[in-house]
Design a protein around this nucleic acid. Structure first.
Length: 589
RNA sequence: GGUCCCGUAGUUCAAUGGAUAGAACGGAUGUUUCCUAAACAUUAAAUGCAGGUUCGAUUCCUGCCGGGACCA
């Protein structure tokens, strides 16, 4: 059990003993003590002052003394400032803590591991991945890593939106304008190749609409009547009827796109235990509608359409089957949820999807619960905000989309230039250099997208956002590499004997001890930014420590060994923290 | 029409209802005969507006202003 949990438990025990009042340990607020004030941890008394009818001074003294008696050897003394009870933790406690901590036991494994599915990425097959997909991919990967670090089993899946009018648009444009060209003979990545025809469709469409409007047609009608638009719709119809030529073309173009995606996924580090395709799942869920009708979860309107009434839950009425018998988007999702659950038998399922679908997922979870599908209580929506540019939203039609491949390549290039200008890795082989540039470039990008609360929309300024200093991935990678460099010189065989910790040494010990709680909190709130912030603070603290105190030239041998141990633990924690974000840390940079 | 989210230094982000609102970038000033200066230290700079609840509000409630998303 962690020290903070012990303090909470002990507080509850003491209040019970002193005043006969039951308090849940979770109710006790334990904070790190402000730097200016003596002490390490602070218990906020205000909450109990009223309940117990005691002044903060009296309560603080009685509770403080009882706690000292309850935790001898750990607590050495206390003081009270206003309603805050500040405890000082003994030197021995922290020394023992560092002594027994090792890179292997930084994180205790959960006692109740779960099997959790993380669905993320969800690309469309008509265009390449962009900045928004990167946020999605990094979030999905990171949350999977965080859950794994806790000891859970994680299954990563992907649902590909490979059917619908948008794909038909690329297909018809290719038929009209490509002259049979392929990604191979244009030396283009397949997803970009297909995406270009999506753009070509939109250009042609716009021109045709303008022409019709000039001929006297209303805008609305022109948008329906544009020949290329009608062509796309006919194509969708043919696809649904299983027309062989259409399906062939569809398969061919999808193959190109997937080859492109694979390259990108490999580069950024994304993988899936299983990929689902909407072309296979879009008919799912129909039987569930019948079951729902039988269970009276759904009801039928006079026109034959099927609905669910969610007004009692504060939502609307929602259609689940149209009057013509076709299923709607949410019906497929219910079907897919059931299918995935059957296939993997997971305890929980996390969907990494943009916040424009908040309502959709509320409805999805509610319907699954009402249908009493297994594990429907375990449906979580990791909702994330859009990535916007300083000029506003990204719009593919206006060409203001930041392409994922371009951005990744640019980041890697900048890391190359930066590394070369510093000239610290002259002995690296070309292969090692390539790997290092990738590690740093991707580290910068991933950290940038993960350091912000996922729920909030964020602004990406291509000019300013690419930074390698301060609150960035490379800063932490650098700190790790520097520690490793020192450890290579000092060696890591040590024997620890008792010594008095200096303030910065103690501060490091305290910060290291917070790691498991940070991982748990990130997992509970589905928020990797907590890990990013923690990892940054730890790195910063170590750098301050490093600037103040020498490791190899410590005053005494026992100090040196203690600091080597602190270095080992800090490096290992930084490595694990970055791993939780899907970021590698180099041994040298 | 209805539901939901967001407004914090010049900029990008923090702050389970707790002490003097933290960082980073950018600005100003310093630090390298010594373990990696992609670093460290010092410094100026912010809670949209008006009420309310509370010992205490960036946080909770109400209204307004401004930005965004979704449902029909």
């Amino acid at each position: 059990m962690s020290l903070i949990s012990n303090l909470k438990q002990s507080t509850a025990n003491c209040i019970q003993q002193l005043y006969g009042i039951q308090i849940a340990p979770e109710q006790v607020l334990v904070n790190a003590t402000k730097p200016e004030i003596e002490g390490d941890y602070t218990i906020v008394l205000f909450a109990f002052v009223k309940q117990l009818g005691k002044s903060p001074e009296v309560l603080g003294n009685e509770l403080g003394n009882a706690m000292l008696a309850e935790m001898p050897g750990t607590l050495t003394n206390f003081n009270i400032v206003k309603g805050f009870l500040n405890f000082t933790i003994s030197n021995q406690f922290w020394f023992d803590y560092i002594k027994h901590l090792s890179p292997e036991n930084l994180l205790p494994k959960t006692e109740s591991p779960r099997k959790i599915m993380v669905e993320y990425s969800s690309p469309n097959t008509n265009k390449p991945l962009h900045l928004g997909h990167l946020r999605n991919n990094f979030l999905g990967w990171s949350i999977a890593e965080i859950l794994k670090l806790q000891g859970n089993e994680v299954v990563k899946t992907c649902i590909v939106n490979d059917r619908g009018i948008h794909i038909c648009k690329s297909m018809i444009a290719w038929q009209l304008y490509a002259n049979g060209a392929t990604p191979e003979d244009t030396h283009q990545k397949g997803d970009h190749f297909v995406g270009d025809y999506y753009v070509k469709f939109n250009d042609a469409y716009k021109a045709q609409v303008a022409e019709l409007v000039a001929g006297g047609m209303t805008q609305e009608l022109a948008e329906k009547e544009a020949p290329i638009q009608k062509g796309a719709q006919e194509m969708l119809l043919k696809w649904e009827q299983g027309d062989a030529a259409t399906i062939d073309l569809w398969k061919r173009m999808n193959t190109w796109v997937y080859a492109g995606f694979d390259t990108t996924y490999k580069k950024i580090g994304s993988d899936f235990a299983k990929t689902y395709f909407e072309s296979n799942t879009y008919l799912l869920g129909k039987e569930l509608v019948d079951q729902g009708l039988a269970k009276k979860v759904f009801y039928q309107k006079e026109d034959g359409s099927v609905w669910i009434d969610l007004t009692a839950d504060g939502l609307d009425e929602k259609i689940v089957r149209r009057k013509d018998g076709t299923s709607v988007y949410i019906t497929q999702d219910i079907g897919l949820a059931e299918m995935k659950q059957k296939e993997f038998n997971t305890d929980a399922s996390i969907y990494v999807v943009g916040d424009e679908q908040n309502y959709h997922f509320k409805v999805l979870k509610l319907i699954c619960q009402k249908l009493q599908l297994p594990a429907s209580d375990g449906i979580y929506h990791l909702s994330y905000g859009m990535v916007e540019l300083p000029t506003g939203k990204m719009k593919s039609r206006e060409g203001t989309v930041v392409d994922a491949d371009d951005l990744v390549d640019e980041m890697i290039n900048i890391s190359k230039e930066k590394t070369e200008s510093l000239g610290k890795v002259s002995e690296f082989t070309p292969a090692q250099l390539t790997e290092l540039y990738n590690t740093i470039g991707l580290g910068a990008l991933k950290f940038f997208l993960l350091r912000v609360d996922p729920k909030k929309k964020m602004i990406f300024n291509p000019e300013e956002s690419i930074d390698f200093h301060g609150f960035t991935g490379p800063f932490i990678q650098y700190t790790h590499a520097r520690i490793k460099s020192i450890l290579r010189k000092t060696g890591t065989t040590i024997s620890l004997t008792n010594s008095e910790l200096l303030p910065l040494e103690k501060a490091l010990a305290i910060e290291l001890s917070n790691f498991p709680a940070v991982i748990n909190e990130a997992a509970e709130t589905l928020d990797p930014s907590k890990v990013a912030i923690y990892t940054f603070n730890l790195a910063k603290l170590f750098n301050t420590f490093y600037a103040e105190h020498s490791i190899s030239n410590a005053d005494t041998e026992e100090k040196k060994h203690l600091r080597i141990q602190l270095g080992i633990l800090t490096a290992a924690t930084l490595q694990k923290g970055m791993q939780a974000l899907g970021i590698a840390v180099p041994e040298q940079m």
